[in-house]
Write a protein that binds this DNA or RNA. Structure first.
Length: 373
DNA sequence: CGGTAACCTGGGAT
DNA sequence: AATCCCAGGTTAC
């Protein structure tokens, strides 16, 4: 009674042709052209289709020291934005598709490519950028207690913490566990492609992040086939739990903004695939918990080098994890997560290469990674 | 309760 | 070329 060839069955609701993670594992039935479709006139309808939209750059009242796009978008807070120009990044905020770029003087301006409402887009953008928080003031305070921070801050101005949508943030970081940036980005891209198509900029297509309802139609097996590995069940499991919340999962997540950090973390950790680190990412990057500290291997390195030298050489266990977080909070205070963000970025190989050598040649620790049984 | 092995996958190092 | 190791961890013993 059941078809033995599921790949030939054609009853799919109509998944908007998700991009493939691995080129090898997926074969479309036959006649479908594999990857890119060059014959879809979706590239630049901006002027012809939407004459009402003012597709022009609008300055934001934000200097480079308040927002550096290269230090904010491609540094691991979000995997959804793409670089579409030398100093330009493009992504979506809710139903709005827009680009940000630095002007000659470093100031940031934005361009709305597609949006149901320009005024709503601007409000969403300001909210997303956390513009109410002065980075310069925070960093002055951090610098007073930490000369190394002060020095790094000179070179890495404008590394800002975004205020993302919690569902979007959660799903992204579910993909991040024990994974690398490149593959995380591909996974997030796959999930994103389930959302409404909003437009293309350069070579990239952009979709609104799919609702929980849309996400709930994806099976664990589909995700596995798409290359998610064991994270497939994290996604489906978490979506299921969220869907079971009385007021809806999105609302439930938003309500965590009103809780204290420990309670928010505990709540997040009830979701499958969410542990302390992912929970802290969600708390910091989407739930206004500015002193949440995502303790990953990088932060662990930082902490053992500069904050808790007595722990050098130890393994990163959950308990030590919270101890690291506490150390950051005692040192940097209420906005410790924002300090951690800068220190984390300074550890990224891409940024490290740009810093004067005296920052990182302090003493290359001998790996000593003998995890022999 | 605190400490360790699996867990998917792909790219880079050995 | 075959393995090993690792990547912004979490879960199950």
């Amino acid at each position: 009674m059941h078809s033995m060839k599921p790949s030939l069955a054609m009853k799919r609701p109509r998944p908007p042709s998700p991009p493939l993670l691995s080129s090898a594992s997926t074969k479309q039935t036959s006649s479908t052209p594999p990857p890119k479709s060059l014959h879809q006139p979706k590239t630049p309808p901006l002027s012809s289709r939407k004459p009402k939209l003012h597709t022009e750059w609008v300055p934001l009242n934000l200097s480079q020291s308040e927002l550096s796009l290269p230090l904010t978008f491609p540094t691991g807070q979000t995997f959804r934005w793409r670089q579409t120009g030398p100093l330009q990044f493009t992504g979506t905020i809710g139903p709005h598709l827009l680009s940000l770029k630095h002007l000659q003087n470093g100031d940031v301006s934005y361009l709305i490519h597609s949006s149901p409402s320009e005024s709503a887009a601007k409000l969403a953008l300001l909210d997303f950028l956390n513009v109410g928080i002065s980075l310069a003031k925070l960093w002055d305070a951090f610098s007073e207690n930490d000369s190394r921070f002060a020095e790094l801050a000179k070179y890495l101005k404008g590394a800002r913490v975004l205020r993302q949508d919690p569902v979007e943030c959660l799903i992204q970081f579910l993909c991040s566990s024990n994974n690398n940036i490149g593959r995380i980005t591909k996974m997030v891209d796959f999930v994103s492609s389930l959302g409404t198509y909003l437009g293309s900029v350069g070579e990239f297509e952009f979709h609104e992040f799919p609702s929980l309802e849309r996400l709930s139609v994806v099976s664990e097996e589909e995700l596995r086939r798409a290359g998610f590995g064991y994270r497939a069940k994290y996604i489906t499991g978490t979506v299921d739990v969220l869907q079971s919340k009385p007021d809806g999962g999105a609302q439930w997540l938003l309500s965590l903004r009103k809780l204290d950090l420990p309670e928010a973390i505990d709540a997040l950790c009830t979701l499958p695939g969410v542990g302390p680190k992912v929970a802290a990412c969600i708390a910091l990057f989407s739930l206004d918990h500015h002193h949440a500290i995502p303790v990953d291997t990088h932060v662990w390195q930082i902490a053992t080098k500069y904050l808790l030298p007595e722990l050098a050489g130890a393994r990163l266990t959950p308990k030590l994890c919270s101890r690291v977080a506490d150390a950051f909070v005692s040192k940097y205070g209420e906005y410790a997560g924002w300090a951690q963000t800068l220190l984390f970025i300074a550890e990224l190989p891409s940024q490290k290469a740009l810093l004067p050598s005296h920052f990182w040649d302090i003493k290359e620790k001998k790996p000593a990674k003998n995890k022999r049984r």
